[in-house]
Design a protein around this nucleic acid. Structure first.
Length: 760
DNA sequence: CGGCATTCAGTTTTT
DNA sequence: CTGAATGCCG
């Protein structure tokens, strides 16, 4: 026990050894937070606390698995018994146990975002509202936001401020949709992600005996990544620790990047108010990164107005400056990064797993995949389209879900006519509407179809009902998840349909379904799982996320490609932070307010602080999007970093290769002429040439997104006016052939930095 | 009802 | 460009 205490610095030791009472640990990036949490839990258990009475909440399954492993290494198998997991998984578990209090059964389904949106779409249609106006995405976000603030549908309808807001957005009926949505979820015996937290709050609010049970049970509550909790989550933890007062929260306000999901930095402030005798410990020494990286990171984050005061420092070496790579296109960016990575690997004898490529959006992975594959560098993508989101997987899972929970309307809608059995949209709508009108689950209508729909061809529906009943029987006979699932896959016709599809995609879909069946087999064979039934499997699977997928083979020496969001909590020797272009990062959609910009800046901070030894930035001047080329400007964040820590040599080197169409290297932004002025210039040679006024970034006025396409009139600072006559967008790189009037000849342009797009 | 053609919107990040 | 949603016809 004492052995690891010597490895710790003073505040770390204090955090580990802190006994009873609330404690808040403000842990800067790279300050050994996970180690402190691990040791703290190990210490608690070694000093006699029953692992069953420790609740440890994290944000990702990965983080919790990681911590469990590390604790196991310290104290052995007892670690298994700690209540440890994500908020969603832990409270889903509790809700299963206590489901009857809320009128649910323990077999309730969990709706993912797709299910929720699909339900919202049906409701909008049923209420006769305009689906152009009430977009599923928007409505879903409103509802989700409300639930995360613990605003129920009734509260929503009664709140004049919210209603005024909706009226202003010309969507006065959102409250009604919300209300209907809640009723329908309940009838379907289903909860969405937000309900898992919302309903836990309801459970603890309305049933004090249940709350008391868990308050007594959990003597110690620990919350990691506290800066990312929303109100709903905070209230749960506050209630749970109200008796013992042993709550330990760990977080870093500078790394709060989930405000879009309802995370609330104010929770940290609320915490000090709600637990006045809290001990605050700050971990400020960074053990991860070089001086340069830490200082660069500080220079970024200090621009944010809202932040807790702390001083992150390191005693590590100074290290290299941050390379900046400029590429003409997203494909070139891929190639430059791949070759830089290769050089670095050879020069320093590194392994693939020492590298990470981080980007803002999942869609950016493509060019890096291509380039790495060409270089023969193995990589792994975290995120993207999740295995469990694939159509064929969701289809089989829907069969399983519906067999377990026959009230599950969304699962029903997926499978009722799959494979085709002659039941069309009209019939399906009739069934769901009838169910809603009579306030009964869909299954009641389906299994008694003659009572509800008279006349024609109800036979396919009867057959479907019989089929499901036969599946249900297997569960009631006590068959395990694998037995039931493989029987369903074989007899439902799903597998057969895929098997007969001999296209490449069809083959891979077939394999995917087999893979799911394998996963179920593994689940059943796993000794650690007490329950082997289908319900237990579905429960475990519904909260998995794309970051939790197993590595496909044993080869872990791979470069990691992922979004910055998924990189939180991780560290790599070398980090490439790519796609540093205005509107992409910071995201255009984020630039509504100062708070939004600050969140993007924290995201940038998170990315930078993932790097241990070497950091490289890159950006592209043009990007392929929706079959067109989009011009890009360097991100304002590149200019916000203290320039002393940047190394622009790579940019300069590129300049030599790139010949005639090169932008100045200085990280200044060229101001775009106002659209009105641009219209006048079009086709008028006598107008003065493009004035590229260089101004500091703070003066930057966001321009309209500009696109290049065939027929587009353009102006180049050197070649004058021109017109795009051909675009090669299928090759490895995008090229545009442009006819310039002044030059009198066709010119192949690879770089578009000095090209101005004129209005049509 | 099912199949085919056409239109249209969409890419922020994740539990 | 792609995938989803809509519309039309047999």
């Amino acid at each position: 026990m004492t052995k690891f205490l010597t490895e710790l610095n003073e505040p770390q030791r204090q955090a580990v050894l802190h006994g009873e009472g609330p404690v808040m640990i403000i842990a800067g990036a790279g300050s050994g937070k996970t180690r402190v949490l691990t040791y703290r839990i190990a210490h608690l258990i070694e000093s006699g606390v029953d692992p069953f009475r420790i609740l440890s909440l994290t944000f990702t399954n990965k983080a919790s698995a990681e911590m469990r492993n590390r604790i196991e290494r310290e104290i052995g198998m007892e670690a298994r018994n700690i209540w440890m997991g994500t908020f969603h998984s832990v409270f889903a578990k509790i809700l299963r146990i206590e489901a009857r209090y809320l009128g649910y059964t323990s077999d309730f389904s969990i709706y993912d975002a797709d299910d929720s949106k699909s339900l919202i779409r049906s409701i909008v249609k049923e209420l006769g509202l305009d689906d152009k106006l009430y977009k599923a995405n928007v409505v879903f976000n409103r509802i989700s936001g409300a639930k995360n603030r613990l605003v129920s549908a009734d509260d929503y309808l009664n709140n004049s401020i919210i209603r005024a807001d909706d009226d202003a957005a010309k969507m006065p009926e959102i409250g009604r949709i919300f209300k209907t949505y809640v009723v329908r979820c309940f009838q379907a015996n289903a909860m969405d992600f937000d309900d898992l937290l919302f309903n836990t709050n309801i459970l603890f609010r309305d049933f004090p005996e249940v709350l008391n049970k868990y308050q007594q049970k959990f003597r110690y509550v620990l919350v990691d990544e506290f800066q990312d909790t929303n109100v709903s989550q905070y209230l749960i933890t506050r209630k749970l620790s109200a008796v013992h007062q042993n709550i330990c929260i760990v977080g870093d306000d500078a790394q709060s990047i989930y405000a879009f999901r309802g995370a609330n930095i104010e929770n940290i402030l609320n915490f000090e108010r709600d637990f006045p005798d809290v001990t605050v410990i700050k971990l400020e020494q960074n053990y991860r990164s070089t001086q340069t990286i830490v200082k660069a990171a500080n220079s970024i984050i200090q621009r944010n107005k809202s932040q807790l005061k702390k001083n992150i420092f390191t005693e590590n070496q100074e290290g290299q400056t941050i390379d900046v790579i400029k590429a003409a296109s997203d494909n070139e960016e891929g190639r430059l990064i791949a070759s830089s990575l290769y050089e670095e690997k050879v020069q320093f004898g590194l392994r693939n797993e020492d590298f990470a490529i981080l980007y803002r959006t999942n869609a950016q992975s493509r060019s890096f995949e291509e380039a790495l594959r060409k270089q023969g560098i193995k990589y792994r993508i975290v995120g993207g389209v999740s295995f469990y989101q694939r159509k064929e997987i969701k289809d089989l899972l829907s069969y399983l879900r519906f067999t377990v929970n026959q009230q599950d309307e969304e699962a029903f809608k997926r499978i009722i006519n799959l494979p085709k059995r002659g039941i069309g949209d009209t019939t399906i709508a009739k069934i769901t509407v009838t169910a809603a009108e009579n306030s009964v689950p869909v299954w009641t209508v389906v299994s008694n179809i003659h009572q509800y729909v008279n006349g024609r061809s109800t036979t396919p529906i009867d057959q479907f009902a019989t089929l499901i009943k036969s599946y249900r029987l297997l569960i009631d006979q006590g068959k395990d998840a694998y037995e039931v699932a493989s029987h369903i896959a074989k007899t439902s016709g799903l597998l057969k349909e895929l098997y007969e599809d001999k296209t490449v995609e069809g083959l891979s879909r077939y394999e995917n379904v087999q893979e799911l069946l394998n996963a179920i087999k593994e689940f059943v064979d796993n000794e650690e799982n007490e329950e082997k039934n289908l319900s237990a499997f579905l429960q475990s699977v519904s909260l998995l996320t794309n970051a939790d997928e197993p590595d496909d083979d044993g080869d872990n020496d791979r470069v990691t490609l992922m979004t910055i969001h998924s990189a939180k909590g991780l560290e790599f020797r070398n980090v490439y932070l790519v796609g540093l272009e205005e509107d992409l990062f910071p995201s255009q959609m984020m630039l509504q307010s100062r708070e939004d910009l600050e969140e993007e800046r924290r995201l940038f901070y998170v990315a930078v602080t993932r790097a241990e030894t070497k950091l490289t930035f890159s950006y592209a001047e043009s990007r392929y999007q929706w079959g067109r080329i989009k011009m890009c400007e360097p991100s304002r964040f590149l200019m916000e970093v203290d320039q002393r820590y940047l190394n622009l040599t790579k940019v300069l080197k590129k300049k030599a290769e790139e010949e005639r169409t090169v932008t100045p290297v200085t990280l200044l932004r060229s101001q775009r002429p106002k659209p009105a002025a641009a219209a006048n210039t079009a086709g008028n040679k006598s107008t003065q040439a493009t004035s590229t006024v260089h101004t500091p970034s703070s003066d930057f006025v966001p321009s309209d997104t500009s696109f290049l396409e065939v027929g587009q009139r353009v102006e180049h600072t050197k070649f004058g006016f021109g017109k795009v006559i051909k675009m090669d967008i299928n090759g490895t790189d995008r090229k545009a052939v442009i006819h310039f009037e002044k030059a009198g000849e066709k010119t192949l342009l690879l770089s578009f930095a000095k090209l101005r797009i004129l209005d049509k």
